[in-house]
Computed example of a mutant assay.
Amino acid sequence: MQNLLYFLYRFRTFGLFLLLEGICAWLIIGYNNQPNAAFLNSSNRLVAGINTLTSNTGDYFQLKTINDQLIRENLLLREQLANVSLGLVEIDSSVRKYNLFKAKVINNTFQRSMNYLTLDVGSKDQVLPGMGVIGGEGVVGQVKSVSGNFATVTSLLHRNLMISSSVKRTRTLCTVQWDGNSPLEASLKYIPRHIPINIGDTIVTSGFNAVFPENIPIGTISEYQLEDNDVFYEAKISLAVDFSSLEYVYLVQNVMKAEQDSLETETQMVQ
C-alpha cells in the first residue's frame, strides 16, 4: 500500500493532467454537436471493425470443420448419384451397389511415366486392391496396394492403366489411356470411324466393369484425326481432374464386385 501511495504521489501532476484532459474531451463532445457526431461515427467504425475482425477470425478457425462437413455431404451425394444411375433411388442398404469412402492424398506424382498416389486409409478402413478412385471432378485411378493404414493408387496418369469409357453423347464404347506426355491430356482409343465425334464431346466411364459406376467424368475431346485407311479415330482428351492439386478423393466400393467377377470368370471357363 505504501508503494502504491508513493507511486500516485510521484505522478500526481501527470495524473491530474490526464483527468483534466478527460474532462475537457467530455465537455467538448457532450456540448458540441459536430465533435459529438464525429466521435460517435469514429467509435461506431472502430466497433464495427473490431466486430468484423472477430467474426473473420472465428470463421477462419471454423474452416476445417466446415470443410469436413462439406466433404461428408459431397460423399453422400456422390454415393446417391452412383446408385441412382442403376435405378436404386431409395439407396436401401440391401440393394445399394456402391459405397464411397473419403480419403486424403498424402503423396502424389504426376510428372513420371507411371504415376501413383498414396492415401491415408488402408485395410482397417475396408479399402481393398482394385477399388476405383474418383475426385471432385472425375476419375483419378485404381487402388493397387493396401497396408493397414495406407493405400497406393495407380493414377490415371499411368501408361498401363486403361479405363473403360464411352462418349456420353452417343454412348459409344471406347478406352482412355495415358500416353505418358502431358498430365493434362490422355489418349482416346477404339472409336470406330463411322461414329461422328466433335471437339468438346464429354467422355465418361462406361460402367462396363466392376470398378467404376457409369457416367463418372473423365475428360472432353480436345483433338482428333482420321486418316483414309484408319479403322479407329486417333483422339486426345483434356482430363477433367487436375492431378497437380489433388487433396481429397473418394474410393468406390462395388459391393457386388465379387459376385460379378465370379460369374464372369465361370462363364469364360465354360467356353
Rank of each mutant, 00 (worst) to 15 (best):
W26D: 03
A151Q: 03
P129F: 06
K97S: 06
M114R: 15
L161V: 05
L20I: 15
C174P: 07
Y6H: 11
L70C: 05
N108R: 10
Q142Y: 01
G58E: 09
A37Q: 14
A25N: 08
W178T: 04
P183W: 00
S182H: 08
W178I: 07
L81Y: 07
A235V: 07
L263D: 07
G219W: 02
G58V: 08
L226V: 06
L117D: 05
L75M: 09
Y190M: 08
G148W: 02
K236S: 11
Y60F: 15
A38G: 03
R171T: 13
S145D: 15
D59Y: 11
E90T: 12
G122H: 02
S113N: 11
A210G: 05
N67R: 13
Y31C: 06
N36Y: 09
P129L: 03
K124T: 15
N107T: 03
N99G: 01
R12M: 03
A82L: 02
N32L: 09
S244K: 10
R72Q: 15
N99S: 11
I197Q: 03
F243R: 04
I195H: 09
E259Q: 12
R45P: 00
S238T: 14
N44Y: 07
G135W: 06
D179A: 11
Q62F: 10
G132Q: 05
F150L: 10
N198Y: 14
N149G: 08
L19T: 12
V139R: 01
H194Q: 13
Y60M: 11
Y98T: 01
N254P: 07
K97Q: 15
L77N: 09
N56C: 07
P217N: 04
E21V: 15
I106N: 10
D125R: 11
D179P: 02
R78H: 10
I237D: 03
L184G: 13
V167I: 15
F232S: 06
V252E: 05
S42E: 13
L18A: 13
L157I: 02
S164G: 05
V167L: 10
L251A: 03
A82Q: 01
N41F: 08
T172H: 02
G180V: 08
K64V: 12
A103M: 06
S238W: 00
D179N: 15
D59N: 14
L117Y: 02
R193D: 10
T205N: 06
G138D: 04
Q271D: 11
N36Q: 13
